[in-house]
Design a protein around this nucleic acid. Structure first.
Lengths: 336, 336
DNA sequence: CAGCAATATGTATGCGCTTGCAATGCTACT
DNA sequence: AGTAGCATTGCAAGCGCATACATATTGCTG
């Protein structure tokens, strides 16, 4: 089978009796070309299955139209939704997303090198960040970076995330209002700035009320089963918490299941449980978990528009954007 | 700010006192070049932040190294896992995934045109399929297609999916063994070949036993809330089912919640519930849903290897690959 | 050390497109 | 009719790299 060459603009030009340059213009929005020739060219192109070769266009225009997405946190409950939002927003703006999975620091940096090779016009990073070295390399190469959901100081990149301080204060206030005294904070990721922001803001808020304190902070707990285990462990202690804030809904649901089905702990009387993320199951009647609704859609859209505006203005100035999240008070916390 | 041009192979060549061709060879695996010059060139390249421009390489090699992923079913419970698997497998093979979201038929076809423009070397389609026209266009352009999780006859594309007939038979057998008589089948997508394959195989299997029948097939039901609604409606009928097979775990969990918390239906005595997909929540103690475990990981890997082998052998022969899924019998079905 | 094969390097061309510039065609106005 | 002014088209160079081919260098054998 002789792999036949795909038709190019010259082939179309020959068929339409025009110059190759005119074919190029026919496919360039706003180029100087008469309606008549354009029509003639498009007809010829259709006849030949011709589509402009974007690779060649990229080379001559010196911009690929590619945006690299570096996706670290696939376990995020809304991972699919977020990625979908990113891809669609990027496509809508006339770019194409190239997705790369990354977990370790080295693989993140390696992915950036790959992105550079592919001449991406910009990079979006989800829940991780490049090393200072790599970030500097991108700066030298004029590739703007926007980091979603992971604030990282000292890196030349823009950041879009939630206002974790504000969320922490809201949670703190709600706990005070519910007269909870002994608070435990359970998180999966010890290094997440979002988590530590929330955690610190809760601590700071409740510190204003006498007799209320954070009795423990546990990190590295992640998932439903781990939640059940955690509440079992906590309940074996002498001093038990009367409120648990969990930076993952899955873990919180595990804790809830442990309370209700195994340990017979009454929620929200004996124990308050608060999650983070508002996954669908949290709203289900048999769970009814209080949690924090994160404006993922807005975060995603903001991320993409921020990046693309940087690409278009060739600006490398880092921005720091924080959107508001909303605390949803449901059945797992008492309101007074 | 004068946007400085990125260094190219000529710049490196100048610094290293060699020809541009040698620089190219230094970055081409297995090219004819001495260790000494290669080292010299790599040093110079490092000094200049040089990375080969893959766009230019693509143009001259006439292959982009890009694989298009057309992702339709973002609501799939394992969407993130699947996409992650695809991206990682693709990257590992030395290609890069370009992700495109698509829902309507037109957007699917449009996405294909885009992929052609970007000179992708192959396309993976998740849970949808191109029109016959577009598929023919890809055939003419020598772009192999592999469709994951959606068998579509009459299209020039390879298919990787589960053996739905076999799954249906297993479910049918399990129902017979549990002495269930009046079976309802609830599915979201009326047009899915996987769903209809399962559905038909169940019907065929139970038809061998006297007194057992499919009393209703309902389509277009999707999600937890819809599940609750559905069981409520079904229970208001004169003839109630004693087994419900649901092609989505979420819906099945909704049905289960309706049974246990609202209608006081005893599962699995009065009603058997079977889901599909084995989402994490199905295995949770408070649900314990019988369901079908789909080998997503294997499906994904097979999809990618199939596609890449087609790319490398330039074969356009469609293949039809069906992997086995496993029925997990848990607490929502009686075993005899 | 001659002589030849194998290896290494350079030269030059082309991948398919965009775009600056020059040439042409057209309109409208004097 | 003549020509300024603009829209349209063609021409040709170049984007950064791979590679066929020519040339230079090395290593090896007898």
């Amino acid at each position: 089978m002789t792999t036949k060459r795909r038709n190019n603009s010259q082939d179309v030009a020959d068929l339409a009796n025009v110059s190759q340059a005119s074919v190029s213009r026919a496919f360039t929005l706003g180029a100087s070309i008469s309606a008549k020739t354009k029509e003639k060219i498009l007809a010829a192109a259709a006849k030949l299955d011709y589509q402009p070769n974007i690779i060649a266009r990229s080379l001559s225009k010196n911009q690929s139209g590619l945006i690299g997405i570096l996706f670290a946190n696939w376990d995020h409950p809304k991972a699919a939704e977020i990625l979908k939002g990113l891809c669609e927003a990027i496509t809508e703006k006339g770019f194409k997303p190239v997705v790369q999975s990354a977990s370790t620091i080295e693989s993140v940096d390696k992915a950036f090198i790959d992105f550079l090779s592919y001449q991406v016009d910009g990079v979006i990073v989800f829940s991780t960040s490049p090393s200072a070295n790599t970030s500097a390399l991108c700066l030298r190469s004029n590739i703007p970076i926007v980091i979603l959901n992971h604030s990282t100081p000292g890196i030349n990149a823009s950041i879009v995330t939630i206002d974790s301080i504000k969320v922490g204060r809201q949670i703190g206030d709600a706990l005070l209002k519910g007269r909870y005294k002994r608070i435990a904070i359970i998180s999966s990721d010890a290094h997440s700035q979002v988590v530590s922001g929330i955690s610190n803001a809760i601590a700071e808020t409740v510190s204003h009320a006498a007799g209320t304190e954070i009795i423990s902070k546990i990190t590295g707990i992640h998932g439903y089963e781990a939640g059940i285990q955690t509440i079992t462990d906590l309940w074996a202690e002498d001093i038990k918490p009367d409120a648990i804030v969990c930076t993952s809904d899955y873990t919180a649901l595990g804790i809830l299941a442990g309370c209700r089905h195994q340990l017979n702990i009454s929620v929200p009387e004996e124990l308050c449980v608060i999650g983070l993320g508002d996954i669908p199951a949290s709203g289900w009647k048999d769970h009814d978990l209080s949690t924090v609704k994160i404006p993922h859609d807005e975060l995603v859209k903001t991320t993409v528009t921020t990046l693309i505006s940087k690409i278009e203005t060739k600006s490398m100035e880092p921005e720091n954007i924080r959107l508001e999240a909303k605390l949803l008070l449901r059945g797992t916390i008492r309101s007074s």
